[in-house]
């Protein structure tokens, strides 16, 4: 903020009723209210959504791209978390 820059906000849009918000992009704004209005004008000009969230980018803690492998690989060798791992004869229905 050395040059008096406006802070960055991440923009999330609920594309339609019933769905959860999805990340759409980001923008700079002086405060949250301005971020919301600008997000509407930038990201929702053509009926892209029914609800908007703006979150200060600085408030987001993200996983490290470089650690992707080690961070997620604990799930890779756990095939037994998936239904297809279990042998159910095809005659058995509704399961």
């Amino acid at each position: 903020m050395a040059r008096n820059e406006w802070p960055l906000f991440e923009v999330f849009i609920r594309p339609k009723n019933g769905l959860s918000h999805k990340h759409a992009g980001s923008l700079h704004a002086a405060d949250a209210r301005m971020a919301l209005e600008n997000a509407r004008d930038v990201y929702a000009r053509r009926g892209e959504g029914v609800s908007l969230w703006v979150v200060p980018s600085a408030a987001i803690t993200a996983s490290e791209p470089a650690d992707k492998e080690t961070f997620f690989d604990p799930a890779d060798d756990k095939v037994y978390r998936h239904p297809t791992f279990y042998d159910i004869p095809p005659e058995v229905k509704n399961i």
Partner: peptide, 26 residues
């Protein structure tokens, strides 16, 4: 909405629970 969406996630995960139980019974 939030309950419905939580249930979608849960149902997806539940699918193996019943199968592992039935496999034990089998």
């Amino acid at each position: 909405g939030p309950y419905a969406r939580a249930m979608v996630r849960i149902c997806r995960e539940e699918s193996f629970h019943q199968r592992q139980g039935y496999e034990i019974m089998l």
